[in-house]
């Protein structure tokens, strides 16, 4: 998947978000850092282009402190936590690059709950690679990529990477 493919997928997701929520009122986009945050910003731009004149509050929700595997790995660096408005009664669309086991999303939802009580939480991902370990399902999917556990899916965004692309590589590559 190259940048064009990514842009097309995001454009479609933007339309779907607007359609599903009948507009953008009450909508908040929260990316999961690092790359999910960049994708959230891209989505924000697309939504605001489609719905002229609207402003969709966009930020980041870092799930690190809520993860269930902290004690199993080296200390993880903390990432940005940016909740732009009070999320009580809002529809929060969480944005991530790859949906895999679902554990990050679980942690991110717990984090969100500490900030307030959203009306609903929806999930947008660029890639769903399968292998869920928790009962979590994305509301918006850019592309389903079936993978094996011996593979790794990497999303690169040109904001911080050399180019925007989605690649499947052998695990540990």
């Amino acid at each position: 998947m190259d940048n064009k493919g990514i842009e097309r997928a995001l454009a479609r997701i933007a339309h779907e978000i607007i359609e599903r929520n009948r507009g953008t009122e009450n909508l908040v986009l929260l990316g999961i850092p690092t790359r999910g945050h960049h994708l959230a910003r891209r989505l924000q731009k697309k939504i605001e282009e489609i719905e002229r004149g609207v402003n969709v509050p966009t930020g980041a929700v870092d799930a690190t402190l809520y993860r269930d595997d902290l004690g199993m790995k080296e200390t993880r660096p903390l990432k940005e936590m940016e909740i732009p408005i009070d999320i009580d009664g809002k529809v929060v669309v969480m944005v991530d690059d790859v949906l895999f086991t679902g554990r990050t999303i679980r942690a991110a939802m717990n984090a969100l709950m500490d900030f307030g009580r959203p009306l609903a939480i929806q999930l947008a991902v660029l890639v769903d690679r399968g292998h869920r370990e928790l009962p979590i399902k994305a509301d918006y999917v850019g592309k389903n990529i079936p993978t094996s556990l011996k593979e790794d899916v990497r999303v690169h965004v040109e904001e911080i990477d050399p180019a925007s692309e989605v690649v499947v590589v052998p695990l540990g590559a």
Binding site: L65, Y66, F115
Partner: peptide, 23 residues
């Protein structure tokens, strides 16, 4: 530097209504 940048993240926690993380 690592301690100071990590502390910057944690400063936000103390400003929340629910000042607690399960970490």
């Amino acid at each position: 530097e690592l301690i100071l940048s990590t502390a910057a993240s944690f400063k936000e926690v103390s400003t929340r209504e629910i000042k607690k993380v399960p970490t």
